[in-house]
Design a protein around this nucleic acid. Structure first.
Lengths: 341, 341
DNA sequence: TCGCACTCTGGAACCGGTTCCATGTCGGCG
DNA sequence: CGCCGACATGGAACCGGTTCCAGAGTGCGA
């Protein structure tokens, strides 16, 4: 294998100069630099990142902890992160861990604690105190995107506001019997993403004077299409007090709800209005009204923040106010309409 | 930072012995090993992988090249790979690159060529000769899963047979006007995954004496739900010669086709039978008949092969015959039925 | 003309492990 | 009883870069 010593010898300089020439740090005469570069190209020299990180302490590698890759929001975030890291010359090490468990502990204690990553991005993970402490102790910067956990930078939309906005949209259309397809754990963990969206729903319903109705019309389910499907079947199963509108905690759930409604012979939006959250790429096809968030952009932003934390000065644009929620937008399509009188 | 020298000193042994004790290689007295372990735990010692790989040449890291993470098959494969690598103590570095382009060259020339990964798994990527040559030159083992490319281990289902099987299922049900929703590039690249499935379709149709019909009934589209939706609208748009069955190249396309049919007022399977390929987790919900493959298991298998190539002897079960296609299974649900007379 | 600052370069230490080789000890066997 | 081999351990080299420090050469202002 070609080492930097070989390059140096071929170029007739010392290892020190060769290193400076190739890395661009320190003073090297232009002619020398060129000679070194030619020599390096000639023998197909490739620097050993292991050797470099041994002395610099940087691995040029960012760990990403994410509970799913196969749900749209998460996949999209992951793609955004990947692209941004690639551009910055960083590698992305993937840790696909979900709920607490042996695997999760293993990742935090063994993989992340090792010196293989310079920083960590946690997507949709509610970090425990022990976990953030472990990261802090190793002085690893981390940002969490759409998940709770003290310490570190935190990025997320205002899920409470999103839930309220979606509900208000339905209220403005004249709906009063509005149901909510909540994500798992919404009731038990109010500070989680599904929890906040549920809170927003309850708040808006209460403000409109429908507090008592609201509680009874919440069903929790997996935030997937089948989850939304079975949840909606439950919600719509009692012909007597059937809701005229459903706020689904995610677009995938909303798709499932639409399908369930059609299965029951209910027209959307004629008999049932449906609104979701995400801005899923299939929303257009389903004609789904939704609160768009921009997961790809969120991923790229998380990378910006992390690079900034790492002291990478290439991050040109000033970061947005930390703490300010990420942008969302209500997009009205054909799945919501005025309540039948 | 605690280094192995500190551990050694605390335990009253040499660096060499400490290293042997912690890594488990070579002879160390049981009592000594215990002393070293206690010392390491006491000061919270964590080995530097950079230092280790500098001398051993192994990074305990596998690169995964994958064009999408947000399509079900790919996401599922990725999760399978991740889990298996984690169990084996390897890290997974993700390279999300699709079609040829600057990014792709950059990944192969810059990222993969660097010595950061011990091996590469390419999922659904048709490797160019230049790319495989580059990997070979660096002596990096690689396996490609569901993609073409000479050299290296190759894992995939028999896509031609899958296409034929799906078509035959429809033929057995008495359908004769069968359309095919093909994936992009099916016609132009016959050895690609969509290409093989299309070949299988044509073969089965020809064998049944419907060759002339078949050609006219193929539409290519993105292998996604909207792709299947718009493709199906095209296929079903001419009431005169409307097909009575559709073979979609992927389950996601099939879902889109089902939705398109319903949008057009066609009952599935009454007016239109639909079959897909994948065994998508939503197939049950849609009642979709499909050719199941097992992407999660495929991912794990790819890891087994790669670890075997790396000389990891922990791979217990003997690998299946290389070259033999991966298993598939026809699962009949409610989206296919006998052709209307 | 001298001195200072700045550029360019090489030597050498160092990062933190692994591994080769040498040394020493001990038990078993002929 | 002596020898051989297995086991246990330490010393030192080494992996391949980066960086500190020192020294040489150059240009410019006082």
């Amino acid at each position: 294998m070609a080492a930097i010593g070989d390059v140096a010898r071929l170029a007739g300089v010392s290892k020190a100069t060769a290193s400076r020439a190739l890395s661009g740090r320190g003073h090297v005469a232009e002619a020398t630099r060129r000679r070194v570069e030619v020599a390096a190209a000639e023998i197909g020299y490739i620097a050993s990142p292991a050797a470099a990180s041994l002395v610099t302490g940087r691995t040029m590698n960012v760990g990403v902890v994410i509970p799913f890759v196969n749900r749209w929001f998460f996949g999209e975030v992951l793609e955004g992160i990947e692209r941004a890291l690639l551009e910055a010359g960083y590698d992305l090490t993937l840790y696909n861990v979900g709920s607490a468990g042996e695997d999760r502990d293993r990742v935090f204690d063994f993989f992340l604690a090792r010196k293989r990553v310079d920083a960590v991005i946690a997507v949709g993970v509610d970090l425990t105190e022990r976990e953030t402490a472990s990261l802090d102790r190793r002085e690893k910067p981390f940002v969490s995107l759409g998940g709770s956990g003290a310490g570190g930078a935190r990025l997320s939309i205002d899920d409470r506001a999103a839930g309220a906005l979606a509900t208000e949209h339905l209220l403005h259309l004249g709906h009063t019997r509005i149901a909510h397809l909540a994500g798992e754990g919404a009731a038990s963990t109010p500070e989680s993403v599904p929890g906040c969206r549920r809170e927003g729903f309850l708040e808006a319903m209460a403000a409109a004077g429908h507090a008592s109705d609201a509680d009874a019309h919440i069903v929790e389910a997996e935030m997937t299409m089948p989850g939304g499907y079975t949840g909606a079947l439950q919600l719509l199963g009692h012909p007597g007090r059937r809701p005229s509108a459903v706020f689904a905690a995610s677009d995938e759930m909303a798709f499932g709800a639409i399908r369930a409604a059609e299965r029951l012979g209910l027209a959307v939006p004629g008999d049932l209005s449906v609104i979701g959250v995400d801005g899923h790429e299939y929303a257009e096809m389903f004609g789904l009204t939704t609160i768009e968030q921009y997961p790809g952009a969120q991923g790229r932003l998380a990378v910006d923040v992390v690079l900034h934390l790492l002291g990478e000065d290439a991050v040109a644009d000033p970061l947005p106010d930390s703490g300010a929620p990420l942008p969302t937008r209500l997009v009205v399509r054909s799945s919501t309409t005025a309540a039948p009188r």
